[in-house]
């Protein structure tokens, strides 16, 4: 894992991280409802509201250390592995094979895999295929709302190297540029059996304590953000949304 990421770092052109205050907004006007505004309360008090600010949390992600003893952490990792809650976000065509997966034929519930409709409760983000820039933005938002530890599985060849949309102007090619990916399952589409195999492999990784994508993301936050902002021109989300 560590080595892979080093590779990634080497490939990126050494570019100064762009200034933090919503750089892309220079070119793209923000939607009206997202512009900070001042409202007058019934008592006449003026309140300034910045819709892009999350008033509860203004901190970026931090590296979260494992439990203090090995045994506890192993137990936790076992529990995490056996209880994979997938965020129900079908980002691309791969979502179509999720349905057979969760239904009688393949019944992934047997293996402790469940759907969760909200990112807060999910700990596994399955990027099901290509990501258009517009979806990438939402996927990042979703990912960031998930809690540490969290895992990302790239599904289909499009997440690996662009797949059949390698020359499209609207889809990213390498998922690992934007999110820390734990596993890739190739295929177009990967069959449900391949997905199950992927989840099985992910379980092994988690049990071995090797799926630390969330911490990797926190450690290399600046770089991920730089990459993300390079392609998402309409950057109207806070950098600190946890």
């Amino acid at each position: 894992m560590k080595d892979d990421f080093e590779k990634l770092l080497d490939q990126q052109p050494e570019k100064e991280p762009e200034p933090q205050e919503r750089p892309a907004l220079r070119d793209i006007p923000v939607r009206e409802e997202l512009v900070p505004r001042t409202v007058t309360a019934p008592d006449g008090q003026e309140i300034r509201i910045d819709p892009l600010q999350d008033y509860y949390c203004q901190a970026g992600p931090t590296v979260q250390t494992p439990a203090y003893t090995r045994i506890i952490e192993d137990l936790f990792n076992w529990a995490r592995a056996e209880s994979l809650w997938i965020l129900g976000f079908g980002t691309g065509c791969g979502a179509i094979e999720m349905r057979p997966l969760m239904t009688p034929r393949f019944d992934a519930y047997r293996y402790g895999i469940q759907w969760r409709p909200t990112p807060r409760q999910a700990n596994l983000l399955v990027i099901s295929g290509y990501l258009s820039v517009k979806t990438l933005k939402r996927a990042i938002r979703s990912y960031e709302q998930m809690q540490n530890p969290k895992y990302v599985v790239g599904l289909g060849s499009c997440t690996i190297n662009g797949g059949m949309y390698w020359d499209s102007y609207n889809t990213i090619k390498r998922l690992d540029d934007y999110l820390p990916v734990d596993l890739y399952i190739t295929g177009c589409m990967p069959r449900p059996e391949a997905l199950l195999q992927g989840f099985d492999d992910l379980k092994k990784l988690i049990r071995a304590g090797k799926a630390e994508g969330a911490n990797k993301y926190a450690e290399n936050f600046e770089r991920y953000k730089t990459n993300q902002k390079r392609v998402i021109k309409d950057w109207d989300m806070p950098d600190y949304s946890w």
Binding site: Y130, S132, K134, T135, D167, S168, T171
Partner: peptide, 14 residues
Amino acid sequence: VGYLHRGFEKLMER
């Protein structure tokens, strides 16, 4: 919409 836009019509032109 547009979350799944891959530009097929453009891609097919090449």
